[in-house]
Amino acid sequence: MDAAVRLNAHASGPAGARPILLVHGFGCDQSMWHHVAPELAVDHRVVQLDLVGSGGSDLDSYDPDRYSRLEAHAEDLVALCRELGLEDVVLVGHSVSAMIAVLAHLAAPELFSALVLVGPSARYLDDGDYVGGFSPSDIEDLLETMDSNHLGWQSPLAGLVMANPDRPELAAELEATFCRNRPEIARHFAGVTFLGDNRDDLRKVTVPTLVLQTRHDAIAPVSAGQFVHDQIAGSQMVVIEGHGHVPHLSAPTETLKAIREFLAR
């Protein structure tokens, strides 16, 4: 299956313009770029996608063994860029995909010429002096919260979906609920996301990098962004005044301004 189909990739903007690849993080899907993608597409070739296991991606391609490493998602990004013939790519990764972006750059340095890391954290769990912000029991609590919110998938309807692969409208009814990916996949991806540690990968980054986040981010606090900034030589850091983990939804104007100023440098 083509990477573009597997990843539910969509392109917009002028064909010859510099490509920007927008990669959503843990939780939802590419609709998170709803506010910023059209603006960027004025003068960039914008490619949005759903990570395998999320949104409209090919869920059958989610092999838990393969996707137990973030590198697998990074390989998907590389495969997509090669398939679409993209070069000189600005790779924008949010949340866990900030680390996926770093790994994609390390795997195929010739493809990516700039990284924008939105709300990055190299490690979510505390570790000695390093403050990730979370303990293992917090992550366990997240998994339970997700289970409680996946009741739709436990319903008789979900049983019907599993028993009727030839009736995709049943699955569509469940999947239409934005931000409610399949529980077993969401659970697995949550573990891979929050138990990861990519601190050692940051120093290997060799392209211009922007670290972008809000002042008050409960998932990736400024200290986490600062660590990423400190580890990536020559990187730039912009802190947007505001709250939340998703500045491209809560502060799209400031987010666009920061990205445009970074790319203009």
Binding site: G25, F26, G27, C28, S95, F134, S135, S137, D138, I139, E140, D141, L142, L143, E144, T145, M146, N149, C179, R180, F194, D217, A218, I219, G244, H245, V246
Partner: peptide, 11 residues
């Protein structure tokens, strides 16, 4: 709870 906090921000 802590898990709920993450869930609020990510979902």
């Amino acid at each position: 709870s802590a898990g709920g906090r993450i869930y609020l921000d990510t979902h």
